[in-house]
């Protein structure tokens, strides 16, 4: 498992709807905020890159210091963003695909308003389990 990883789902309106620090490193608030700043900045790159490829997984698109940003863009332009320091691309791809499925399940919930924050604890548990498995 990667020592640092920050996973965030950003809605099509650029609002983070799910965020999780999934790294094994000791969590510090400052670092977590810095992670989010990096991911936020990477949105600029995603915004251009998403339209140049038909693949959903955009691979590593940005980096800052030794942290790499990998992005997976769904058809509805929801972006699954992972900030990580490991280079396990296959694992990240699988992670994204499985989280995408989970996200679709959340979307299917009639009580979930698309674009609003995902508060399901079940989702959270599953995402963390996937992170342990793949990252």
């Amino acid at each position: 498992m990667a020592s640092t990883a920050c996973f965030i789902i950003v809605s099509r309106n650029d609002i983070p709807i799910y965020e999780a620090e999934v790294g094994s490193a000791v969590k510090k608030e400052d670092a977590a905020q810095q992670h989010q700043f990096i991911l936020h900045a990477a949105l600029d790159v995603v915004q251009d890159l998403a339209w140049t490829t038909s693949a959903m997984f955009l691979k590593a698109i940005d980096r800052f210091n030794d942290l790499v940003v990998s992005v997976y863009v769904t058809a509805g332009h929801t972006r699954l963003m992972l900030l990580h320091d490991s280079r396990n691309e296959d694992g990240i791809k699988s992670f994204f695909q499985e989280v995408h499925e989970l996200y679709i399940k959340v979307l299917l919930n009639p009580l979930y308003l698309p674009g609003s924050r995902i508060t399901s604890s079940h989702f959270d548990t599953k995402v963390r389990a996937l992170a342990r498995k793949y990252l």
Partner: peptide, 15 residues
């Protein structure tokens, strides 16, 4: 309404 709240990333905004 959504456009009003676009890019509201509260963690970053607070920081």
């Amino acid at each position: 309404v959504v456009s009003l709240f676009e890019s509201q990333w509260s963690t970053l905004q607070m920081v």
